[in-house]
């Protein structure tokens, strides 16, 4: 449904978006991740036709956004960043306006407005003016506007920004459910949302795509992915560390914690080791040495760590591990 090819946007000398390409099909929810100023909002604004691209091509449902903006815009619902809404209107008036702008009228309009009011839990504020709404309600009002015509393509710029945890959960559930029939792109910098709602995620940094895959694929890029954490009670840290490091399956160890709850050590597998080999050898070692093991767990890899290591390539992983090793 959405096809972006070599998209470039420059603001003066700055390349805000630098050669981004991706596609989103119906039934996909694409999470757009990246640090602030990475070009997420700029990309979304170009997809929705608000700002023209400097170079590259965007098609939505087969329509080129630059050449056939109106036809392309009809297919899209858009929630801009910060959820703007006309403050002098009531929620009801605003949603009716949005419905009319989408070409709905009469019975169809009434139905559409009622549907989104119900979907976004706006019943209690329907006749309130937008500038008296709390941030969460205003956000949902703008969100309601974006789905009022039940568009096949949804572009959501930080849809959960400013919502409380319950509302965040509702919105994620909504996105995931709508994603079954629509093509959805949403941006966020909350990483847990990627797991909660996305079928695929793209990380962009300084205008370029630096990672693209399912949440699981992204997680497996993490350094700690596949490593095993081991907690042993009543044994000096140095002893645990030496013995674990001697194992043939272990590439490197890292002492995470040493206190009344014992010694917590992370062992990284050798790259050639088969799956599970490290766990087995650690388990056998603990049996042989007669250690009191209170925890033995395989690390899944954390998205925030992947995110950090990808978007801060010069500093993060190397410096961090040496510091912790020397403890």
């Amino acid at each position: 449904m959405i096809k972006v090819e070599n998209l470039v946007k420059t603001f003066g000398p700055k390349r805000a978006v630098d050669g981004i390409s991706f596609t989103v099909e119906r039934g996909e929810v694409l999470g757009f991740l990246g640090p602030n100023g990475a070009g997420k909002s700029t990309t979304m604004r170009m997809i929705t036709g608000f700002i023209p691209p400097t170079a590259g091509r965007i098609t939505v449902g087969g329509y080129d956004v630059v050449e056939h903006p109106i036809a392309a815009k009809r297919l899209m619902g858009y929630l801009p960043e910060n959820a703007p809404a006309y403050t002098d209107m009531t929620v009801w008036g605003f949603l009716n306006f949005a419905a009319e702008m989408r070409g709905l009228s009469g019975e169809a309009k009434r139905k559409a407005v009622n549907r989104v009011i119900e979907m976004c839990f706006l019943e209690t504020v329907v006749h309130q003016s937008v500038d008296t709404l709390s941030k969460g309600y205003r956000h949902r009002t703008c969100f309601a506007q974006s789905i009022i015509h039940d568009p096949p393509v949804l572009i959501l710029d930080e849809p959960t920004d400013g919502l409380d945890p319950n509302q965040k959960h509702e919105v994620r559930t909504l996105i995931r459910r709508m994603g079954e029939t629509k093509a959805i792109v949403f941006s966020t910098h909350i990483l847990e949302e990627v797991d909660a709602a996305c079928t695929r995620a793209i990380i962009i940094d300084r205008g370029k795509i630096v990672a693209n895959g399912t949440p699981a694929q992204l997680r497996s890029r993490s350094e700690v992915s596949g490593a095993v954490a081991l907690r042993v009670l009543g044994v000096p840290a140095s002893e645990v560390k030496t013995k674990v490091a001697e194992l043939p399956t272990v590439r490197r160890t890292q002492l995470l914690e040493e206190n009344g709850h014992g010694v917590l050590l992370r062992a990284y597998p050798r790259p050639d080791a088969r799956d599970g080999a490290l766990q087995e050898s650690l388990f056998e070692l603990a049996l042989r040495a007669n250690w009191k093991v209170t925890e033995l767990r395989t690390e899944e890899g954390r998205l925030d760590e992947v995110f950090r290591s990808i978007t801060l390539p010069d500093t993060a992983p190397a410096g961090q591990s040496t510091k912790e090793d020397s403890r």
Partner: peptide, 10 residues
């Protein structure tokens, strides 16, 4: 910021 909304309507 409603300009962004208005001009992304069809």
């Amino acid at each position: 910021g409603t300009m962004e909304l208005l001009l992304t309507f069809p």
